[in-house]
């Protein structure tokens, strides 16, 4: 009974995923490519960077990267605060 239920669940999930894979958006044909085309056409002239990803991450979306850096900083702050333990003179 339990095995049959597991098998049924597996078949259901697999069929669902296969159905979704068949209906995927075709690769390399974005539905709204205006912004992608803008970055590809202008990023080299505007930022002087060959690497368009870096141009987007540090120039066009620099504020976003600042938030990401803040997240990393907060994570490190949390780890240090939890694992530092008491000071030598507080023991």
């Amino acid at each position: 009974m339990k095995k049959a239920a597991v098998f049924a669940a597996f078949v259901f999930v697999a069929a669902f995923l296969l159905f979704a894979a068949g209906r995927l958006h075709p690769f390399g044909e974005p539905s709204a490519p205006a912004m992608d085309d803008y970055f590809l056409a202008h990023s080299q002239a505007e930022t002087g960077a060959n690497n368009v990803v870096t141009a987007i991450v540090f120039d066009y979306r620099g504020f976003d990267t600042l938030g990401e850096a803040t997240v990393l900083f907060a994570a490190i702050l949390g780890v240090v605060a939890v694992f530092r333990g008491p000071r030598e003179d507080e023991r």
Binding site: T47, G48, A49, N50, T54, F58, D59, T65
Partner: peptide, 22 residues
């Protein structure tokens, strides 16, 4: 330094503040 459009071999002295941010 200005960068030509399209694929190129890369100019290290380009991209403004991006290297510093890197």
């Amino acid at each position: 330094a200005a960068v030509p459009f399209g694929p190129n071999s890369g100019i290290l002295n380009s991209a403004g503040t991006l290297p510093f941010m890197n």
